[in-house]
């Protein structure tokens, strides 16, 4: 299957959005902070890699690191300002959209970063250069695979560390968490800057894979939505949700887009996307992955006491 270049590039996108979904999922699914402007961080990562590489020939590795630091600081600043002035919940989410749109408009008019004309990476030469993160589609597939694996391991690691416990407590009930000594102000800033920095890393690789950066696509609302579809469909707050969700949603979107083209039904992919999203939210409100887990447990153990038994086995 890996011989088919279309499948490879599709899987590369699926894996990249798995990673971006992980980053978003860390923030909402574990930290309880909703962002609808994750494109801001993705874009900052993409532009850091793009500007340094295209303008100065500096290795994308440096660009990725720069992007992560930049996005992490921007995320921390937004969080600090917002929570310092008691902007939280849905108002914080609105602030993230505003920040992303502000950045998109700024980058659209900024000649230095290519404005609306965007930035173009030089065409790949065919050889694989790890030091410059350049290679063919197969190379980027493995980069995306590594990134997604890193995302899953990282999420699992954070989830099992004290941060995971403290963040989930903060997500479930902030004032109860504070009464138990959780410094929620610092922890919210921390989870948001980690999420922003990882989104930037994903954005930098996404830019390399696409070969070009345009403010409207890399920083637009559409990208913010694409980032959150994986975890929402797959299962919010779960480690494997973003992977399962991206695997389900992105190929479907591409398939329907192709089908729509051949049947001459414009927008068929968007209609299908909408129907699938509504169905998932309606029938599996906690996502596909938790439903799979429930199904497996129900098959393994006798139905009467499965919950207690499976818990005991874990001990």
């Amino acid at each position: 299957m890996l011989a088919n270049p279309y499948v490879i590039s599709l899987m590369t996108i699926v894996l990249l959005f798995t990673f971006l979904g992980q980053s978003w999922n860390l923030m909402l699914g574990i930290g309880g902070q909703l962002s609808i402007g994750h494109a801001l961080f993705v874009g900052l990562g993409a532009y850091s890699v793009g500007v340094l590489y295209v303008k100065y020939g500096i290795s994308p590795w440096v660009g990725l690191l720069t992007g992560m630091i930049l996005a992490g600081s921007v995320g921390a600043s937004i969080a600090w300002l917002s929570f310092r002035f008691q902007v939280r919940g849905i108002y914080f989410a609105l602030l993230t959209i505003a920040a992303a749109e502000f950045a998109r408009i700024m980058f659209s008019g900024w000649e230095f970063v290519g404005a609306m004309q965007g930035l173009f990476f030089p065409a790949p030469t065919g050889g694989i250069e790890i030091s410059m993160l350049r290679g063919d589609t197969r190379f980027y597939y493995f980069v995306a695979l590594a990134l997604a694996a890193l995302g899953i391991i990282g999420t699992e690691f954070i989830s099992r560390s004290y941060l995971g416990y403290v963040w989930r407590a903060m997500r479930d009930d902030e004032s109860a968490a504070r009464a138990l000594g959780v410094r929620t102000f610092q922890h919210k800033i921390l989870v948001i800057s980690i999420s922003a920095a990882t989104a930037a890393a994903g954005g930098g690789v996404l830019a390399l894979v696409q070969g070009s950066i345009f403010p409207d696509s890399i920083m637009g609302m559409g990208l913010s939505v694409d980032v959150l579809i994986g975890p929402v469909v797959g299962g919010l707050g779960t480690t494997f949700g973003p992977l399962v969700g991206s695997l389900a949603a992105i190929p479907l979107n591409h398939l329907m887009s192709a089908l729509g083209d051949s049947l001459r039904i414009p927008g068929l992919n968007n209609i299908t996307y909408g129907v699938v999203l509504i169905s998932v939210v309606w029938f599996l409100p906690d996502g596909i992955w938790p439903a799979i887990v429930r199904l497996c447990k129900a098959i393994q153990a006798p139905p009467t006491a499965w919950l207690w038994q499976s818990r005991k086995v874990e001990e």
Binding site: Y162, Y165, A169, D172, D173, L180, G181
Partner: peptide
């Protein structure tokens, strides 16, 4: 904390003095 077990609920307070 609804989605957490009884034990996990009781653990949160301990993180005010340990990270282990």
């Amino acid at each position: 904390m609804r989605e957490m077990s009884v034990l996990e609920n009781a653990m949160i307070g301990a993180f005010s003095w340990t990270r282990n």
